[in-house]
Design a protein around this nucleic acid. Sequence first.
DNA 1: TCTGTTCTACGATGCTCATCGTACATGATG
DNA 2: CATCATGTACGATGAGCATCGTAGAACAGA
Lengths: 124, 124
Amino acid sequence: MCIDRDDRRGEMMRDSQDTWLPQPAPDEVEIGQILQALADPVRLQIVRLLAAAGEGSCTSLDVPVKRSTVSHHLRTLRESGVVATRLVGNTRLSRLRTAELEEQFPGLMTAILAATPRDRQPVG
Amino acid sequence: MCIDRDDRRGEMMRDSQDTWLPQPAPDEVEIGQILQALADPVRLQIVRLLAAAGEGSCTSLDVPVKRSTVSHHLRTLRESGVVATRLVGNTRLSRLRTAELEEQFPGLMTAILAATPRDRQPVG
DNA sequence: TCTGTTCTACGATGCTCATCGTACATGATG
DNA sequence: CATCATGTACGATGAGCATCGTAGAACAGA
């Protein structure tokens, strides 16, 4: 019963194998929301980590904020259409919606992820 | 003397014909700043208008905010590296730094500008 | 010089939101 | 059942910023 209480904007999605948190349909995703989601440095870092690792959870993502804040950011990323989250046991694994984003905004994520992260400092 | 007081981060630039407001060098432009600049709906609208018209000034841009706010947004866009502004008489004409952006972040602006503006509503 | 236009700087204001701590639900494990 | 780990909801807080009005500088034209 808490399933549909989990998110205000929709119901759980069913895959052949997995259950997914509600997310906007590809044609509902708006470029303004995407840009707003990626504007935050922590969220951009999360996106980079997901692009590198494929998947990530609230605790596995190495970002300098508390767990509840990571959860908040993952929610924002999901509601804007950037990531999809599936339930695996007690954890929730998020991944980039690479295919849908490429369909809706060709070249966008590629261009952003190709950009050099600014927090890379020359060490040694 | 007020020329270098006009912006805190640099001096005027001289072209063969024009004088330009100070702006970051192409390699100083950071993707995070770009995304943050484009995250605001009014600024995104300004960018769309500039892409369509080529150039625009504080008063010529048709956005639903006051002139001083447009000036503020153009400053943000300039300092983030999105637009360049040249002085023509009493007016200041801003344009997208299309070439430099394409060089630094290939496909980025193309992808964003290709996205359908959300404020298009079916009328009639 | 006087007038009108364009634009910016500055201060004030109000709202959005990133962050955190806490409490709680859920699932895994013993 | 008891315990622990994971994640979210919620309320509070503080900072950032979008917006505006006003004042003043710079330029064009008469």
